[in-house]
């Protein structure tokens, strides 16, 4: 049975990216998404706060939230998708929770995450 388990494990490993940049909940990250439009490929950046990190291995994803023109926008990014060209951490946040869904109900300055103090 063990050898058979490894077949499906191998299959999952094939689609994994070799390494992911380090980031945590509450950080602000910029994701470069590949977009194919009329046969042409271009890269669109999406910047947002990590409010949740879900799944593991091949199915790991993050939920990014930003407020754009007064409208809250959330985007779920599958980390190992080939459409995600790259992503990097812009700002490190200081939070005490793993899921920041409470940010959805906050307005103004309360809807921002405090920056982690560097010592």
């Amino acid at each position: 049975m063990e050898t058979k388990k490894s077949v499906i494990e191998e299959l999952r490993q094939e689609n994994l990216k070799p390494s992911l940049p380090e980031f945590g909940i509450g950080d602000t990250i910029q994701v470069d998404v590949r977009i194919i439009e009329g046969g042409k490929e271009r890269i669109q950046a999406f910047t947002g706060t990590v409010i949740a990190r879900n799944g593991g291995g091949i199915s790991e994803s993050v939920t990014l939230r930003r407020v754009s023109h007064g409208q809250g926008v959330e985007r779920v990014i599958p980390l190992h998708s080939p459409r995600i060209a790259s992503f990097k951490r812009i700002r490190q946040g200081s939070v005490r929770r793993a899921k920041l869904y409470y940010l959805r109900d906050q307005v103004g300055n309360a809807a921002t995450v405090k920056e982690k103090r560097q010592r």
Binding site: I8, N15, I58, S59, S81, P82
Partner: peptide, 10 residues
Amino acid sequence: THVYTETGVM
């Protein structure tokens, strides 16, 4: 499990 196509569809 899941795989990605060439266009990146899961």
